[in-house]
Design a protein around this nucleic acid. Sequence first.
RNA 1: GCCCUGUUGGUGAAGCGGCUAACACAUCUGACUUUCUAUCAGACAUUCAAGGGUUCAAGUCCCUUACAGGGUACCA
Length: 483
Amino acid sequence: MENIRVRIAPSPSGNLHVGTARTALFNYLFAKKNNGKFVLRIEDTDLERSNEAYTQNIYDSLKALGLNWDEGPDVGGQYGPYQQSERFDIYPKYVQKLIESGHAYECFCTTEELEAEKEEAIANKKAYIYSEKCRNLTPEQRAKYIAEGRKPVVRFAVPKDREIVFNDLVKGELKFDSNLIGDFVIQKSNNTPTYNFAVVIDDMEMKISHIIRGEDHISNTAKQILIYEALGAEVPKFGHLGMILATDRSKLSKRHGATAVSDFVKQGYLTEALVNFVALLGWAPSDGEEIKTVDAIAADFDITKISSSNSVFEYDKLNWMNGQYIKKMDIKELTEKIKPYIEEAYNINELTPAQLEHMVEVTREPLTILSDIVKDIPFFFGEDVEFEGTVKEDVLATETSQKVLNKVLEDVDGWDFNNLEDLHEKLGELRTFFKEQGIKPKETMWAIRAAITGRTHGADISAVINIIGKDKFTNRIKKALIS
RNA sequence: GCCCUGUUGGUGAAGCGGCUAACACAUCUGACUUUCUAUCAGACAUUCAAGGGUUCAAGUCCCUUACAGGGUACCA
């Protein structure tokens, strides 16, 4: 069996986008499933837009998602360098090879000349295709242009009347007519390669066997196949994934909210949930079980079964999934992850590590993202409570509430505040006591909850009491009484 | 304009010529509860973009149209 090698080739002109993350994931899954290698190549040829910080962000995001690469700029490998800017010296010899074999030629046309061609094509309502006027220059013409100081680009000589056919792993058979492809530039006038040329050379040298990427590259594929063939290289297999769209069916962009993996993480999404969610965009588990680890997904993965259409990035489902992961996460790990959000809003030192963990444990349930916890826990900190809405007037000030609170104050010395079980029991007794007087258990609890948290909903009350302790508890009850 | 791809419910999707179109999110209803959440029990596409054709039989195959996305650069 041939060696399976796949790659992800992001350009560091921004933080790692979720779309790129999904492409990386599918490559990773494919490699895992087929015992292949997953290669990371940084395409930083566009020096204007590339930036070291983005490269770092790509590394960090990929690692956080658990998509570890076997070869890459940082870990090396036998087909390096893996950073395109360090590969500039290897392209010219291939360009030369193509010129010598008649597959490419120098073109001296100026931007103005090209513009004129384009305008004419538009005026005639025809598709613009380069005129090929430099394809067969005489040595004299060439010399003349060079004497004029014109810097040539190198164009690929696209063969006529060729049907370029390839079997896409996800889309099926795709056909292109070579007559519709103009002679495209492979080397710019500053002697650097264009994207279409550089990828082919890199993928070829890195022995990439399967190219899995977004469908925005479909039309490039025809050009790239032509280059592989001209070079006498083996053409890899291609698989083109549908795009990820926003809810309004436009491309997912910043105005829709977070788009970079690191943005999601900052907001409090778990990377485990994020990869899981993104895997479900275009792929469906064979057993219907959607919540799965990357390893489980890899075992079930089949590139051939990926949906060939675009899919919408639905935040609702991501939120649900993130909530599922929060509920199931190990409490110690969760506490560590959620701590920064708490620290940012409150004086975390008011709680012992054990109390902190307990608090996280009892407030985790309704969370969809980690940062949500902040709004659910203000009453664990400080002496006083802030009352939400009309809680003070509508809940606390009622006759029944006051009755309940008075009773609580009478009993409180008999409560063991360090014993959660006991608190639970005492509250139960309180409920039955008032129930016999015709007060609903709900109302009894509301009174206490309102007094100590300032709201009518939240975590389990006995746990809250247990965490804040006797002093805070009694003080707050006293303050809630209208004497 | 031209080229390529796609279209199953609000969303992700299963379905690969043959029973009442899986499953999940969202939504709604009910139960439970110490509130919110969670959980549990239900409801939710007479129909697969529209129209035509092939077939005993079509979401599944073919054609046309519509719509959407991508490409058409000395950007990647």
